[in-house]
């Protein structure tokens, strides 16, 4: 339960309110993780919040996080300068079920900051590309300015290994990508529904319509995975905050199949 001490070694601004930060723990070394797992990040005297690991799962010396400043703790993280230290414990959660996607088409649909926990999964699938059939990423953001990982996106777009579709909600006529809801791009990517897995992360409403759309097209509900977000204080099953019906999302991991979630996702304020 005790955090380890991590030092910020590099920081880059992704959007006006979002930063990607690289940390290291010179004393204990690497943080091994599975794509989709998260850490509890503690800012000295301020508080502790769950943040997904956004780095390369094969380069575990660096702990890479992408944080959007929205409140006390996340703003404090975004305001760190290189050399400054935070506490971090974890990783927690179970990660994206890459094994369940093996041998299938894989569609990754994400919106906003939701791409952060998927970045390691994209890197991982590309590193063992032959394990999967058609691979596509559909990524939605509010405006072109709000797109994260622009360099990665350019790299992935120019690669034949993954079909990348980027869409925004609003844009000026300068924008070269798409404008519209992520679901509108589903007809553009190649997948054979019965043999497709999907990883979805974004606002809950978005995930619901994406899951509904995918399953209406014939993707089995068991193969559609969503990552839920709930308040988390402890990450180890003590505090009760992360409950989503019968699950403590910290213990089960916030990534669950739509098959498992569909019924609960119909209940308001659950």
């Amino acid at each position: 339960m005790l955090p380890r001490s991590f030092r910020l070694t590099a920081k880059s601004q992704e959007t006006p309110d979002t930063f990607t930060l690289v940390f290291e723990d010179p004393e204990h070394g690497e943080v091994r993780f599975r794509p989709g797992q998260f850490m509890m990040i503690y800012v000295f005297g301020v508080g502790e919040v769950p943040i997904s690991i956004a780095g390369n799962p094969h380069k575990t010396h660096d702990l890479i996080l992408t944080v959007r400043g929205v409140g006390a703790v996340t703003n404090a993280i975004c305001a760190l300068d290189p050399g400054m230290v935070v506490g971090a414990r974890g990783p927690y959660g179970s990660g994206w079920p890459l094994a369940a996607a093996k041998g299938r088409d894989l569609i990754i649909v994400t919106g906003g900051i939701g791409i952060a926990p998927l970045r390691p999964a994209i890197i991982e699938t590309l590193s063992r590309r032959d394990d999967f059939r058609d691979l596509s990423l559909i990524y939605g953001a509010r405006t072109p300015t709000d797109l994260l990982y622009k360099d990665d996106l350019l790299g992935w777009e120019s690669s034949a290994d993954i079909d990348v579709e980027v869409t925004v909600d609003r844009a000026s006529s300068e924008w070269w990508g798409d404008v519209g809801l992520v679901t509108r791009l589903l007809p553009r990517v190649r997948f054979n529904p019965p043999n497709t897995a999907a990883f979805v992360c974004g606002p809950e409403v978005m995930m619901r319509v994406v899951a509904r759309d995918l399953t209406a097209r014939g993707v089995p509900t068991q193969n559609v995975y969503l990552s839920l977000e709930r308040n988390m204080k402890c990450a180890v099953g003590f505090c009760g905050h992360c409950q989503f019906g019968r699950d403590f999302l910290c213990r089960t991991g916030p990534i669950r199949s739509f098959h498992d979630l569909a019924e609960r996702m119909r209940v308001d304020e659950i």
Binding site: Y42, F44, G45, G47, E48, K233, C234, F238, C239, G240
Partner: peptide
Amino acid sequence: CFCSTTEDRVTLDGEALRSR
């Protein structure tokens, strides 16, 4: 009932305390 939250504060001599 066991639910809890956490509280963080810094003492005058610069120590940070976390409690449940």
